[in-house]
Design a protein around this nucleic acid. Sequence first.
DNA 1: CGCATATTTGATAGATTTCAATTTATGTGG
DNA 2: CCACATAAATTGAAATCTATCAAATATGCG
Lengths: 244, 244
Amino acid sequence: MERSLDIFLDKLTARTRLTEEERRAVLALPGRSERLEAHKPFVLFGDAATTATLVIDGFCARVEAPSDDKRQITAIYVQGDMPDLYSAFQPEAVANLETLTQATIARISHADIREVMRRFPAVAEAFCRYLVADAVITAEWLVNVGSRDARAALAHLFCEMAVRMGKVVANNFSFHFPVSQLQLSEATGLSAVHVNRSLGSLRHDGLMRVERGAVQVPDWKGLVQAAQFNERYLMAPATRRYAI
Amino acid sequence: MERSLDIFLDKLTARTRLTEEERRAVLALPGRSERLEAHKPFVLFGDAATTATLVIDGFCARVEAPSDDKRQITAIYVQGDMPDLYSAFQPEAVANLETLTQATIARISHADIREVMRRFPAVAEAFCRYLVADAVITAEWLVNVGSRDARAALAHLFCEMAVRMGKVVANNFSFHFPVSQLQLSEATGLSAVHVNRSLGSLRHDGLMRVERGAVQVPDWKGLVQAAQFNERYLMAPATRRYAI
DNA sequence: CGCATATTTGATAGATTTCAATTTATGTGG
DNA sequence: CCACATAAATTGAAATCTATCAAATATGCG
């Protein structure tokens, strides 16, 4: 919990200057942690919420199901993210939240979150900016699905996750991101078969390869180019380690 | 300006109870209004912002251009919307805002917005919920583009606009929505030709027809069904006239 | 009327999905 | 460590949807 709150705080301070006291107040937020298996919903659309969620480890997603045989992942959340911070302002879940992999989450009560915001307006501001950043990422995801072909869309998704997890340290690196091709297909609006072939194409071109949950990027610049990826939308200084 | 501020206030009070004094404070927000021709950018990605925009009349859009020959509309805004209210929290434009049609906008200074929020925390809360609602609409748009076929995606877009403008008064109605098929194609990620054919298919089935800027809906229930439209995501009580 | 913009239509190419089957990984209990 | 069960990845072929190109028609506006 401490580690992921640290990361969450880092994401906040990337865009809002906070005093030592304000930082301590965020880090002191208490939470009940839960261990969850993969493919497990932990927030349901329409539910009245009294807590917000912090991702401690593993990967989670916001999922919508427009029909029985269709699922769309509209956001992916990683360690240190708060997928439903919005519920502290609007206490009704606007979408399902599920684990993509085994994961640990912490439930942080709205009461505590609102108390911190009341005592420290700068923290409230930081939370609002976090919400804005999340919305901007959703909009960029929409661009991805609407305007890029399958190869570029997948490349873009991997670029974004690499940056958001602070894993881009050189032109050649790898990072842990164990989501299945079916899940990638739900995120990109493609079929699983086409995801498989598009990943094959990226591998063939030496841009990236997925191996047992690890994404190997031998040519970051090439991947960025193939994805038309411009990390500016993530709204975090490039020097920052973690971005959302 | 008064009329559209009224509508904006209505959208706020749909989700947040405000006192008479708080309502008056919102309605008293001063703005410089501008008349704009169609296809005119009025906020540019990356710009430092000192004002937020209120749409007084006409239609506007948030647009992103991932490459020179691709444009993606990620949101459409109508009378009484504030497309960049987020900039009061994070004063850097995260996307272009453009007019889709002739339009009138008002620029409202961040200073005035923040002063109202400082004096009336409930108004600040209402603004935050407005941001959340906007983000939820973007996510639903992503579902639209990613998970629905062309016909359903277009039907869904028209359903959403009809509800957001408070035009759904019976099973048979019409409303003014003069956006071109090219603009619809940029909103849905389809080609303009395919938009044309899909609209033709909806017309053929007697669900809706577009005539000189007016959308005629002879069979709202049928259109809702074709779109898999569930207005719940708009997060406004059904009794409300205007929703975002 | 005439230009510019928007819509419509046809034909073709290309991208993506679906279906079906096979192979490969992964995890679990014995 | 093996055998099994399960999930995930891969492959091929055909069907479908959607894009592109090119041209014709309609519409709005000065």
